[in-house]
Structures are given as structure tokens and as C-alpha cells.
């Protein structure tokens, strides 16, 4: 026999799983610290690559004067400035990533909680049906 309440619930669960459930499921497999840490590491790598591209572009942009001044300028202080800018850039980007993914993780956990509650309701419906059949 088909239980309409069970089919309704299963429909809603399947609809959720097809849509945002996929992303939330991935989030749900991680602890908060692991998930945010992973995203921050990815952001650091992306920011490092971007910083490298920007520095290369700047050097190409001003290549003539750079090559002519390279023997005159203080390389240590130049490198120090580059590192400070790098730390500021990557640090700022990591902080934005941390905040953004903390919010996403919190929202995903709420939806996952609802999803698991619905799964428990489904299990309760199955148990009730089994009892009714035994009677």
C-alpha cells in the first residue's frame, strides 16, 4: 500500500537532495574547522597565484626601467615591501573567505538539521507502517 504522507515527505526530501542538498551534503561531511580551514587554504593559494600574476604584470609593464634600475635599487627593502603587500593582500582575502564560509557553513548546518529531522520522521513513518501491517 502506498502511504501518501510518506510519499509527500520523500518527495520533499528528494527535491532537497537534487537541489541545494548536494552542496550542503558536502559541507555536512566536514567539521566546521576543517571546512573553513580548507577554504582558507584554497584562498591563500588563489591569492598567491593572483599576487604572482599581478607582480609579473607590473614587471612586464615597467620592464625597461626595472631592468635598468635593478642594480641601483635596494633589493632587500623592495623585497620587504613586496612581502608586506603580499601578507596584507593574502591576509585580507583570507579574512573575507573566513567570514563568508563561516556564514555558509552555519546556513548549511541549519538546512542539514531540517533534512535529518525529516529523515527521522520518514523512519518513524516506516516503523508505523510495519506495525500496522503486522496487525
Amino acid at each position: 500500500m502506498i502511504s501518501e504522507a510518506r510519499v509527500k515527505l520523500m518527495t520533499r526530501l528528494a527535491s532537497y537532495e537534487q537541489g541545494e542538498g548536494k552542496e550542503n551534503a558536502e559541507i555536512g561531511t566536514y567539521f566546521r574547522g576543517d571546512y573553513i580551514g580548507l577554504q582558507v587554504i584554497k584562498s591563500v593559494i588563489s591569492a598567491t597565484i593572483c599576487y604572482g600574476i599581478v607582480i609579473a604584470t607590473m614587471i612586464l609593464y615597467d620592464s625597461e626601467s626595472f631592468l635598468s634600475d635593478i642594480y641601483k635599487m635596494d633589493i632587500v627593502s623592495y623585497a620587504k615591501n613586496m612581502i608586506i603587500y603580499y601578507v596584507i593582500f593574502v591576509g585580507g582575502y583570507s579574512i573575507i573567505t573566513y567570514i563568508l564560509y563561516s556564514i555558509r557553513y552555519r546556513k548549511a548546518r541549519i538546512k542539514l538539521k531540517t533534512y535529518f529531522n525529516n529523515l527521522r520522521r520518514l523512519q518513524a513513518l516506516y516503523q508505523k507502517e510495519r506495525k500496522d501491517r503486522v496487525r
Binding site: 520523500m10 518527495t11 527535491s15 537532495e17
Partner: peptide
């Protein structure tokens, strides 16, 4: 309109909401 499919022990369900 959403289309989902799932199954249980007895039936396959192809649902159009």
C-alpha cells in the same frame, strides 16, 4: 515544477511536483 525520483522496497517513484 520539480521532477524527482526515488524508490522504496516496493515501488519506484517518479514524481512531478
Amino acid at each position: 515544477t520539480e521532477r524527482v525520483q526515488f524508490e522504496d522496497d516496493e515501488y519506484y517513484y517518479y514524481v512531478k511536483a
